Amino acid sequence: MHDRDDDFEDYKASAQQHTPWRRVLALFRPHLKALLIVLGLIVMAGIAGATTPFMMRAIIDDALPARDAALLVWLCAGLMGVAVLSAVAGVLQAYVSTHIGQDIMHELRVTLYEHLQSLSLAFFATARTGEVQSRMSSDIAGLQLLFTNTATDVARNISVVLTTVVAMVLLDWRLALASLCFMPIVLWLNNRVAALRERITFQQQERIADMSATVTESLSAGGFILARTMGRARHLVRLFRETSSDVARLELRSHTAGQWEIAIIMFALEILPALTFLIGGLMLAHGLGVSIGTLVALIAFQEQLLWPMLELLEARIELRKARALLTRVFGYLDTKPTLVEPPEPVSVDVNTMRGEIAFEGVSFSYPAFGRQTLDHITLGI
């Protein structure tokens, strides 16, 4: 068990709480204009992509049976135009979103460093140096994916999913309903996996911080001399071995947790086209108003829906893991200094200052220890 002071215990208590999503979203608020540009590009690409299956249906049901070359050329040109528009929008969106992400990372790093500079000496007297470094490097670096890719990927995939679902309903609401009836079960399973991964990520970063603290404290010049003097080298090796083993175990759990749930989700998504062909084929055989073009277009919509859905499900897991990292970072930001500089300090002229300093019966102890470091010391200067 490592030593902590009151500041650090406050941090540990706050870190166990989940960070509200509104606090995460607040990090994006200063970049609202740029985010609106990204959102506009995402919506434009999503709407353009949703028109592709309709053009495919028109080619199969109208242009090819009627041998209408002019209509076929226009529809094919429309397909190519949508592809170009989506590519250009994707490049612009990636550039702007990466710029936003790096700005947020920079602001978070500086804010954390500035706040650590304001904390009291007692915090750093008992907080492990390696753990502080872990917050500044490992935890914030782990948020890189969230701020540069995941957040905008979520917005883009939500846009694609919404426009695709609306288009599927407009195409044939009966087949659309049959295609989406299993989604509540998929979302429930995904939420279970995301919650599990979030807990494991928090534990994992705790042990990584422990390992970083052990390395920093034992392999510095002072720590190395102290370890050799006190004969603690074997103890430190054993401690590092145990911590590294815990990190490896949690890393394995992080990558394998919820695999059965994920396998069920993948199975449900992959059998969807077969079920759609079966239901649509039966409807077509019984003359229930389904054309071959409609069936092909709906399958195209499902293919268009599949990857955004998979990415959204994976993004929910990544967002929960990122929230665990933010919880640790915000834990430091929420730590209040025990000693605060007065806003208007008293000015003292050292040339005319006279008098003495007296300590009478002063005792002092660190919060983590049960005994007094100084016990009723009297001193006159």
Rank of each mutant, 00 (worst) to 15 (best):
D3W: 11
D10E: 10
S14W: 11
S14K: 13
A15Y: 00
H18T: 10
T19I: 15
T19Y: 02
L25I: 08
F28E: 05
P30G: 06
L32N: 06
A34D: 09
L39V: 05
I47A: 13
G49D: 11
G49C: 01
A66F: 00
D68W: 01
V73R: 13
C76S: 14
G81E: 06
V82I: 15
V82M: 09
A83K: 06
A89C: 15
V91D: 01
Q102F: 14
E107R: 14
E114W: 01
E114C: 06
L121E: 04
T129K: 04
G130V: 10
G130C: 10
G130F: 11
Q133F: 15
R135Q: 12
A155P: 02
R156Y: 02
V160Q: 11
T163C: 13
W173T: 04
L175D: 03
L177M: 07
L180C: 05
V186F: 01
A195Q: 10
T201R: 11
S212D: 09
S220K: 07
L226R: 15
A233I: 15
V247C: 07
L252A: 14
R253E: 13
T256Y: 08
F267M: 12
H286L: 08
V290F: 00
L295S: 04
A297Q: 08
Q304P: 00
E311H: 12
E314Y: 05
A315W: 03
I317C: 12
F330M: 10
E341K: 00
P342S: 06
V346C: 02
G355D: 07
F359C: 11
Y366F: 15
H376Q: 14
I377C: 04
